[in-house]
Design a binder for these strands. Structure first.
Lengths: 153, 153
DNA sequence: TATTGTTATACTCTATAACTATA
DNA sequence: TATAGTTATAGAGTATAACAATA
C-alpha cells in the first residue's frame, strides 16, 4: 500500500517499456528499423536503399531471374517493382533480355558495372552489419539469424 | 568444366537466396513483417494497428505520460502522433489531462474502456505471438528477444 | 531562448484495378 | 483462361517547416 498518490495526476520520470519489450513483434520491428537506419546512411553513396540492394543482389546471384520471381522472393507487388528495375536499368547496373523460354517475361541480368557496384556494396553491407551487431558475438549473431528465419520461413 | 551453358540466357528454376539470408538486416525485416502481417489480421477486431497498440499500451502502463515521451520512446515524430492520440481519444480509450507540472504538456491517461480493451488486446497479442513463434521453443524465443534488444538498444 | 503540442504539407511506400502481350 | 509485365492511381506511412502557448 505505502503512500500511494491519487493516481490522477502522476508524472512519468522514466517510461516503463517493460511490457512492450516482452513482445517479439515490437523487438523485431525496432531492431529492423535500427539496421535500416544505418543501412540508408552508409549505402547512400551507392544510391541503394535496402530494397534496391536486395533486388540488385538477387539479380547478380540469379542471372536471368524474372520480375515475377523477384516479387515472390521479396514479397513485393509487381507494380512496385517496375520502377525499381527501371531505375537500375537506367543507371546501367542491370539489363532486361528476352526470356529464353517464356515470351512474356524478361530475364534480368547484371551488367559489368552492376556487378562491380554490387561487389563494393556487399562489402559495405558486411561492414555496416558488423557495426550494427557490435554488441553480439559471432555465435550470437548466427543464432539471431537462425531464430529470425524460424519466424518468417 | 562440364557442360556449361553460355550464361547468356539461363533460366532460374529456384531462386538462390543464400546471400541475402546471411544479412541480419534482411532477416530482421522479413521477420518483422511476418509478425506485423499476423498482427494486423488478428487485432483488426480491436481496431488497433501495431503503432496504436504500442501507444495505447504505453499509456496504460504509464499513466500521465506525455506525447513527447511517447515520441521519444517509440521513435515517432510529434506531428504523426497527434492523429493517433486524437483517434484513441475520440474512441473513448484515453483522455488528455492537464500536466500537473508543465503547462505546455498534456498527461495521457487510459479510460476504464481503454484499460478494458487493452487487457483483451494484450491477451490477443500474447496468443498471436505464440502462433507466430510456433517454431521456436520458449528458450529460443527468450534468446531471440534478448539478441534483438542488443541490436537496437 | 527552448520546448510541447499542433497544423499544414510534401514525400515515400504500399496496394488495387485494369490493360497488353504471350502461354 | 491464366500469367508476366506494365500503367495509372489511391491509400498509408513518414518527413519537414512553421506556429501558438508555455517553460
Amino acid at each position: 500500500m505505502s503512500t500511494a498518490s491519487p493516481t490522477q495526476t502522476a508524472t512519468i520520470d522514466e517510461v516503463d517499456t517493460r511490457y512492450v519489450e516482452t513482445l517479439l513483434g515490437y523487438n523485431a520491428r525496432r531492431a529492423s528499423l535500427a539496421v535500416i537506419e544505418v543501412f540508408l546512411k552508409r549505402m547512400a553513396v551507392y544510391k541503394l536503399r535496402p530494397v534496391d540492394f536486395s533486388v540488385a543482389s538477387l539479380i547478380v546471384h540469379n542471372p536471368g531471374i524474372t520480375s515475377r520471381q523477384l516479387c515472390s522472393t521479396l514479397g513485393l507487388r509487381p507494380p512496385n517493382l517496375v520502377g525499381l528495375v527501371n531505375t537500375l536499368e537506367k543507371r546501367g547496373l542491370i539489363c532486361r533480355r528476352p526470356h529464353p523460354i517464356d515470351g512474356r517475361a524478361n530475364g534480368l541480368h547484371a551488367t559489368a558495372a552492376g556487378m562491380s557496384l554490387l561487389k563494393k556494396a556487399e562489402t559495405a553491407a558486411a561492414v555496416l552489419e558488423d557495426d550494427v551487431a557490435v554488441r553480439l558475438t559471432a555465435t550470437e549473431r548466427k543464432t539471431l539469424i537462425r531464430l529470425l528465419k524460424k519466424v518468417y520461413l
